[in-house]
Simulated scan of single mutants.
Amino acid sequence: MSKGFRAHPDNLAKAAKDAHGHAERVERHSSNLDSKTRGRLLGKGRFGLVVEKAVRPIIDSMITDMSKAMARGHRSIGHGLDITKKNIDDAEEAIRKNMRRHHDERDAVHLKLGQRVLGEDDLRDKHKKRVGERVDDLRRQGHGPQRHLDPTDDMLKDRLGTPTGPKDVNGDLLKDDDGNPRIARQGGYVQTENKIDPVHGPNAKERLGEDAHLDAETGKKHKCDSFSTAFGEGQGEAFMHADEHARGRIDGDRTRMPNSNRHEVVFSPEDAWGPGDHSHRFRGFYIDPDNPMNPDKSINYKPVDFQQAKIKAIYAPDGNGGHKLVTMFPEPVRVFNR
Score class of each variant (00 low, 15 high):
223 K>C: 01
273 W>V: 10
175 K>C: 07
71 A>N: 03
227 F>M: 05
167 K>A: 10
123 L>T: 09
75 R>Q: 13
200 H>W: 14
95 I>F: 03
294 N>P: 02
57 P>F: 07
178 D>K: 15
89 D>C: 03
160 L>S: 08
269 P>N: 12
324 K>A: 11
189 Y>G: 06
39 G>T: 11
109 V>A: 08
89 D>W: 03
50 V>S: 05
20 H>K: 08
59 I>F: 09
201 G>R: 02
27 E>G: 02
2 S>C: 09
275 P>Y: 03
35 S>F: 00
29 H>F: 09
267 F>L: 05
104 D>N: 15
204 A>R: 00
90 D>C: 07
27 E>Y: 03
20 H>Q: 04
119 G>Y: 10
139 R>C: 10
90 D>Y: 01
9 P>G: 03
172 D>H: 15
280 H>P: 01
255 T>P: 07
133 E>D: 15
185 R>I: 11
77 I>K: 02
249 R>I: 08
228 S>R: 04
160 L>H: 04
328 M>S: 06
153 D>I: 07
172 D>N: 15
163 P>E: 14
2 S>I: 14
323 H>S: 12
117 V>G: 01
221 K>R: 04
259 N>R: 05
76 S>I: 04
119 G>H: 13
331 E>K: 11
113 L>H: 10
137 D>A: 14
7 A>S: 09
327 T>H: 00
12 L>E: 03
272 A>Q: 04
42 L>P: 01
114 G>K: 12
88 I>G: 04
105 E>R: 01
250 I>T: 01
70 M>T: 02
145 P>H: 00
273 W>F: 11
76 S>A: 12
42 L>M: 10
316 A>F: 01
285 F>T: 05
152 T>Y: 06
73 G>I: 04
55 V>L: 15
140 R>W: 11
106 R>H: 10
63 I>P: 00
10 D>K: 04
28 R>F: 07
318 D>G: 12
104 D>E: 12
32 N>C: 11
323 H>P: 08
128 K>N: 14
50 V>Q: 09
67 S>K: 03
135 V>S: 13
184 A>K: 08
53 K>V: 14
13 A>Q: 02
287 I>S: 01
234 G>K: 05
7 A>G: 06
170 N>H: 11
261 N>E: 10
330 P>N: 11
25 R>L: 11
20 H>D: 07
246 A>P: 02
